[in-house]
Amino acid sequence: MSGLQLDPVIHAPVRLQICAILSAVSEAEFSLVRGETGVSDSVLSKHVKQLEDAGYLTVRKATLASRQRTWLSLTKVGTRAVAEHFRALQRLAASIPELRK
């Protein structure tokens, strides 16, 4: 099982969900990601901050219809890190005999 490089920043369940959501789109509104992950604003903000501090995610704020909106997107570094993390998860899953049947 050599070459298994799980990223501890990405691996936490909520951050893994955030990364999976953002890997499918160019950007997503904070409220959409909150709804998909099922966590509160404060919990999502904490995880977003950790991903942002790691350089994996960018936050864009703008006013739309007189309301402050926040959009999230993966950076190029984040996109590569997420892809490598999912490859590592696939290698890990492939090593489990019951999953190979």
Results as ranks from 00 to 15, higher is better:
49 K>R: 15
97 P>A: 12
48 V>N: 04
59 V>L: 02
93 A>G: 12
13 P>R: 11
54 A>T: 13
17 Q>W: 01
13 P>V: 10
48 V>C: 09
100 R>K: 15
94 A>Q: 12
77 V>K: 13
56 Y>T: 05
41 D>P: 00
93 A>M: 11
46 K>E: 14
101 K>I: 15
27 E>G: 05
15 R>K: 10
90 Q>V: 15
67 R>F: 10
39 V>H: 00
84 E>V: 00
84 E>L: 09
17 Q>G: 01
25 V>K: 04
17 Q>E: 03
70 T>S: 10
3 G>N: 07
40 S>V: 10
28 A>H: 05
95 S>P: 01
93 A>S: 13
63 T>D: 07
11 H>V: 05
35 G>L: 08
35 G>E: 11
60 R>V: 09
64 L>P: 01
80 R>E: 14
99 L>Q: 06
77 V>L: 14
47 H>P: 06
50 Q>W: 11
35 G>K: 06
17 Q>N: 02
64 L>H: 13
7 D>V: 08
33 V>W: 05
95 S>L: 08
90 Q>C: 13
70 T>V: 10
88 A>P: 11
16 L>E: 03
35 G>T: 04
14 V>I: 15
5 Q>H: 14
85 H>P: 04
3 G>Q: 07
1 M>I: 13
38 G>V: 10
53 D>M: 13
75 T>M: 08
26 S>P: 09
87 R>N: 08
99 L>S: 06
10 I>K: 07
81 A>F: 03
78 G>V: 03
35 G>A: 11
101 K>Q: 11
64 L>K: 14
79 T>A: 14
1 M>W: 08
40 S>D: 12
79 T>S: 15
62 A>I: 07
39 V>R: 02
45 S>T: 05
83 A>G: 06
87 R>I: 08
43 V>L: 10
12 A>E: 14
65 A>L: 14
63 T>F: 05
3 G>M: 05
19 C>M: 03
10 I>M: 12
20 A>C: 00
25 V>S: 04
46 K>P: 01
100 R>W: 05
33 V>R: 01
1 M>F: 10
96 I>H: 09
49 K>L: 14
15 R>I: 03
84 E>M: 06
7 D>S: 14
27 E>L: 08
38 G>D: 07
101 K>M: 12
82 V>Q: 04
